[in-house]
Simulated assay, not measured.
Amino acid sequence: MKSLIQPWTLWAFGAAAFAALTAILAKIGVANVQSDFATFIRTVVILAIVTGIVTAGGNWQPLSSITTKTWVFLTLSGCATGASWLCYFRALQVGDASRVAPVDKLSVVMVAVFGVAFLGEKLSLENWLGVALIAAGSILVAFR
Rank of each mutant, 00 (worst) to 15 (best):
W71A: 03
S35Y: 10
I66Q: 02
A142T: 09
F89D: 00
L21F: 15
M1V: 11
S77D: 09
I41P: 04
A12S: 09
S124C: 06
L123C: 04
T70P: 02
V113T: 10
R99L: 03
D96L: 10
P62T: 07
G52K: 02
A17V: 14
V54G: 03
A101G: 00
G137L: 05
S124F: 03
A23I: 01
C79H: 01
S138H: 03
I41H: 03
F73S: 07
L92R: 00
A132C: 13
C87A: 15
G14S: 10
S77G: 13
V54S: 04
A117W: 09
N59K: 15
T70K: 08
Y88Q: 08
A132V: 12
S124V: 04
G14P: 01
V109G: 00
V94H: 10
T81P: 00
N32W: 05
A17C: 10
A17F: 14
A142C: 09
A17T: 11
V116I: 12
V108Q: 06
V44W: 04
V94Y: 11
L47S: 09
L21V: 13
V50S: 08
F114G: 07
D104S: 13
F13P: 01
G115D: 04
F89W: 05
V94W: 05
P7A: 10
L133R: 07
Q34I: 08
D104H: 11
G58F: 11
R144D: 09
S84V: 10
S77T: 12
G58C: 09
L129G: 12
L21K: 05
F143S: 06
V111A: 15
D96T: 07
L92H: 01
A132L: 14
G29Y: 05
T75G: 14
N127H: 14
V33D: 06
N32G: 13
W8L: 10
A38L: 02
A19W: 11
K69V: 14
C87K: 01
W71K: 09
Q6G: 04
T43W: 04
V141Q: 01
A112R: 02
L125S: 12
A136G: 07
A15E: 06
G29E: 05
Y88T: 10
P7M: 05
V116W: 09
W71F: 12
A20K: 05
F37T: 13
K122G: 05
S35L: 04
V72I: 15
F13M: 14
G130C: 08
V109Y: 03
S98M: 08
Q61F: 06
I66V: 15
A80V: 09
L4S: 09
F89L: 13
G14K: 05
L76G: 08
